[in-house]
Amino acid sequence: MSTTGTKTSGDTNTVTDAAGSLSTHHDPRAPVSIHDMTVAYHRKPVLWDIDYAATEGRLVGIVGPNGAGKSTLIKASLDLIPKASGSVRIYGKPYKKQRKLVGYVPQRESIDWDFPASAVDVVTMGLYGRMSWWLPPRKHHKEQALHALEQVGMADLAHRQISKLSGGQQQRVFLARALVQDASIYFMDEPFAGVDAATESAIVALLNELKARGKTVLVVHHDLQTVREYFDDVLLLNMRVVACGPTKDVFTHENLQKTYGGKLTLLVEAAEAIARSVRGGP
């Protein structure tokens, strides 16, 4: 650690160190620490040598171009796909032993929304882990679920069948479920994809609510313009970790160029402009 800490700024390693990362294998205090992870589909590596440790109580945006392995990172961390090498620890222990500490909000398309359930049913599912095996949900479970729906602004639609909700509303149901699940760490796969403005602000409010409760949230995110606004930390990913650490240090022109390639897209320029205005603003 000491040898790399002296490096000039802009260097990837410095930033990694700023996030309080790794010289020993896994920091037991880190909510999520990934060490040396390589994931390959068939023979082609999609993620290599990923080293990353999240800091507790922060909102982390996982950002990178298409095919950079963002969703793969989450899925491999949760043992949903096999790793070619490396290890992941949740508070210092393997995921298998810490399942209950981890909440996962999958991509909306991965669910069959024709399932005969109402919004409140789906939210109640987040509480199943804390109910007894045989008994049906109790009244206070339902109330908890309704309360969570209220928090995401879905109280009126609580009893509507889920296929009759709009995409944004479905996403909010998922988030309400994450809220009641009361995990310590959340992995969210593109919660902002294809949602309306109201949902977007509801999601942001919820992320901040989770943060206020001391949760750590890792969010796969596509929209570069909002990264600065939404996330405390950012993990720039393009098959390998390009940079990670506090957004203000890491989300720089140079790092974005490293992540997205030589030709800066319009979006990155726009993100830069926003970044400047945020820095210059009040």
Partner: peptide
């Protein structure tokens, strides 16, 4: 390979097959 990923990040993912 790592340098390539950094400098040509826009085209890299489809080319990289580091191991083989």
């Amino acid at each position: 390979w790592e340098l390539y990923l950094i400098r040509h990040a826009d085209v890299a993912p489809s080319h990289v097959d580091r191991d083989a």
